[in-house]
Computed example of a mutant assay.
Amino acid sequence: MALIQGIPGEFEPQPWGEAILRSRELLLLRIARRPPDDEVRLPGLATTPRHVVEDHTGRALTWRHDGDDLVVRLPDSGDAPVVRVALQGKLRIVPQDSVTANADGVWDLTPLSTTAHLVARRAADVAVRFVGMVEPDSWHHVRLAGRTYGVTGQQLTRSTIGPFPMPALRVVPLAVPTGVRRVLVAPVGTVLASIHPGRDEVTVVVTNFGRTSARGEVELPLLPGWSATDQTWTFDGLDPGRSVGWATRLTGPPGDHELRVRLDAGRRSASSPYVVHL
């Protein structure tokens, strides 16, 4: 059985061909290009197969689950067969852009489309922080895990939104409003440090996902040979749902480098790493 519960959907075209849903519980794999190792991998199948057979002959085929992928061993003949996959329930998939929360239960997303797909390691109430540029007077419905909040554009990018009851090990879609370039999701109670690059500097931001005000100390550790105009900051009285930030200019060797803020704001402190390009 797949570890993650998927969502209704369809499969994208595959390197070997296509997967077609013939009925609610029947999937056909049309093999147009036979893989060199004679194994077909269908990524993100969350529904357990009942049986897998060659469509033309009814011959049973060897298959296995590899995480959330279905792997089918094709028959030895040189033909490109059609594989019939009977499912134990309705088709549910794990989209390829699904992102599992890190060890702190945090998602730090740079969305590439209008929908993000989140998977929680464990059930928790979470809140969402959108970063970007939207019209302050616009109106948005933020939906996640069966709960919806209506907010203005100003509220959307100025404070956290929630709570949302995230279930464990289930794909949950989140609509991303136009103009949003970063999405932070964290368990309620978390105080989260994140890094946001600019043209000539980076901004270290602390967001309070908790229900009470927060205080703490922030440090941006640097590798040998690096320098920054500022590296340490303190904050006090950070209200629930709000953020505070400090800009600093970095110098260092060219290339991509991962930075992580050191945050001391109590036991629910968390820090999201970010790769900056110099």
Score class of each variant (00 low, 15 high):
2 A>T: 14
2 A>W: 02
3 L>Y: 03
3 L>T: 04
6 G>F: 08
9 G>E: 10
19 A>Y: 03
20 I>A: 13
28 L>I: 07
28 L>Y: 12
32 A>F: 10
33 R>K: 14
55 D>N: 10
60 A>G: 03
64 R>F: 06
69 D>S: 15
71 V>C: 09
74 L>N: 08
75 P>I: 12
95 P>Y: 11
96 Q>M: 08
96 Q>E: 14
96 Q>W: 05
99 V>A: 14
101 A>W: 04
101 A>H: 04
103 A>W: 00
103 A>Q: 11
106 V>I: 15
114 T>S: 14
117 H>D: 04
121 R>H: 05
122 R>W: 11
122 R>V: 08
131 V>T: 12
133 M>H: 13
139 W>S: 13
139 W>E: 12
148 T>Q: 09
152 T>P: 10
152 T>M: 06
154 Q>D: 07
156 L>R: 03
157 T>E: 05
161 I>L: 13
165 P>V: 11
171 V>F: 05
174 L>Q: 07
180 V>W: 00
184 L>Y: 12
197 P>I: 12
201 E>W: 01
202 V>I: 15
202 V>F: 03
203 T>W: 02
205 V>R: 13
212 T>F: 05
213 S>T: 15
218 V>S: 09
228 A>E: 00
238 L>R: 08
238 L>Q: 07
244 V>R: 15
249 R>F: 02
250 L>M: 08
253 P>E: 11
253 P>Y: 09
255 G>W: 05
257 H>M: 07
266 G>K: 12
267 R>N: 06
267 R>C: 01
269 S>A: 15
270 A>R: 09
272 S>L: 12
276 V>E: 00
